[in-house]
Simulated scan of single mutants.
Amino acid sequence: MRNQAGRYECKASNDVATPDVKYVNVVVNYPPSIRKTLSSEPPVGRLGTLQCEAAAVPTPEFEWFRDDKRLSNTQGINIQILGGNTILMIANVTEEDYGNYTCVASNRLGTQSASVFLYRPGTGRDINGSTCASLSLWLLMASFACLFFKC
């Protein structure tokens, strides 16, 4: 099992000689499992960042996709990979950049993918993708409640 990976000690002893100790490293290989994604909500003209974290042994390789197109380090897009983490950075967000991106983690044992979103500001989503009421809608509802209850 994954939690059994690590360094083990083997020690042999008898009454004739000093004990002999050897160490062995046990590696447990497993396919990628995406543990965390982070969407964002940058305004037009600003830096947009999307993040993806996966656990795997051997260390996963990452790819980013938008629609069915594989993304790479090009003008305006920078992909960084450090171990089990990857960050997609869009230098100067445009209207066309908003939408669904796919993070794919793979190694020789398997592949897993996850959707990560670049949201338009004020679209009613928080950076983790949960639906939330916008501040202006909340203020409007509070104003109506105040009028109705004469506060």
Rank of each mutant, 00 (worst) to 15 (best):
R2F: 11
G6E: 01
G6P: 03
R7G: 09
R7S: 05
Y8R: 10
Y8L: 09
E9N: 06
E9C: 11
E9L: 10
C10M: 15
K11T: 11
N14E: 04
T18A: 06
T18Q: 04
D20L: 09
V21C: 05
V26T: 10
P32T: 11
P32F: 13
S33T: 07
I34M: 03
T37L: 11
S39K: 02
S40H: 06
S40V: 06
P43V: 05
P43Q: 07
G45I: 04
G45H: 05
G45R: 01
R46E: 15
L47H: 11
T49D: 13
T49I: 14
L50R: 08
Q51P: 00
Q51Y: 15
Q51R: 10
A55Y: 10
A56H: 08
A56W: 09
A56T: 10
V57W: 02
P60C: 05
W64S: 01
F65D: 05
D67S: 06
K69T: 14
Q80S: 12
G84R: 06
N85P: 03
N85V: 06
T86P: 02
L88F: 04
L88Y: 09
L88I: 06
V93S: 04
T94F: 01
E95D: 12
E96F: 07
N100Q: 11
A105C: 00
N107D: 10
N107W: 13
T111M: 13
Q112E: 15
S115I: 00
V116A: 01
F117D: 10
F117L: 05
F117K: 00
Y119C: 00
R120V: 08
R120L: 09
R125Y: 04
N128H: 14
G129I: 08
S130C: 08
T131E: 04
C132E: 09
A133V: 12
A133D: 14
S134G: 13
L135I: 06
L137S: 13
W138E: 15
W138P: 06
A142W: 10
A142L: 14
S143F: 14
S143M: 07
F144Q: 01
F144I: 10
F144K: 11
A145M: 07
L147G: 09
L147W: 11
F148I: 15
F148S: 12
F149Q: 01
K150I: 08
K150A: 10
K150D: 11
K150C: 11
